[in-house]
């Protein structure tokens, strides 16, 4: 859904970061233009509400641009750093809204006997898919959204969530399984 930043774009990001640190407002605008849509898309996938997505995306961009002096490219790229900020802003939003009551799907009482092959994913409505993702655990949502909505590689997702690439791949596998069960539950109800 979104283009993965190329190495050249990553270099350009660092150049823009340096300019913003030097007080260049035009560079701040360029970074905003480059990332706002992507962050909005990520936050919307996590929260599902346009108004909330706008607030949290703005908060993310503000935190990013005001904390550039704390960013150092030590293995964690600028993009990954920014998604971490977006994740933290999303969690803060949940806390403010007292919405931290989600039941992780793996702990939920789901039917186990259904044949998963019966699920016709092509016929699912887009909104059902988006809503089903939001029933997953924090980590599972994070991985699916970054991998499939933001088009990050497993290595990039590993940087964002602070896990190994192998752990991300395993998490992705579990997340797809949980998503499939959630969709089955929806189609059965």
């Amino acid at each position: 859904m979104s283009a993965t930043p190329s190495p050249a774009a990553a270099d350009d990001d660092l150049s823009l970061v340096r300019r913003v640190r030097a007080g260049d407002q035009d560079a701040a605008r360029l970074l905003f233009d480059r990332y706002f849509d992507r962050i909005y898309n990520y936050v919307h996938a996590r929260l599902g509400r346009v108004a909330d997505a706008e607030d949290v995306a703005i908060e993310t961009m503000t935190r990013t641009l005001t904390r550039l002096d704390t960013f150092e490219d030590q293995g964690v790229g600028f993009t990954a750093w920014m998604y971490r900020i977006a994740h933290n802003a999303t969690i803060d939003h949940y806390r403010r809204q007292s919405k931290m009551t989600m039941v992780p799907l793996e702990e939920a009482n789901l039917p186990q006997g259904d044949d998963p092959s019966e699920l016709a994913v092509e016929k699912l409505r887009d909104e059902d898919l988006r809503e089903a993702i939001r029933t997953l655990t924090e980590d599972q949502q994070q991985v699916l959204i970054l991998r499939f909505f933001q088009d990050l590689t497993a290595a990039q997702v590993a940087q964002v969530v602070g896990k190994s690439v192998g752990a991300v791949q395993a998490l992705q596998h579990r997340a797809l399984g949980a998503l499939q069960r959630s969709l089955q539950l929806r189609s059965a109800s």
Partner: peptide
């Protein structure tokens, strides 16, 4: 399922 997720239209402001 992964392909279906990747094919979802992007939500943009």
């Amino acid at each position: 399922l992964a392909e279906r997720l990747q094919g979802l239209p992007a939500i943009t402001p």
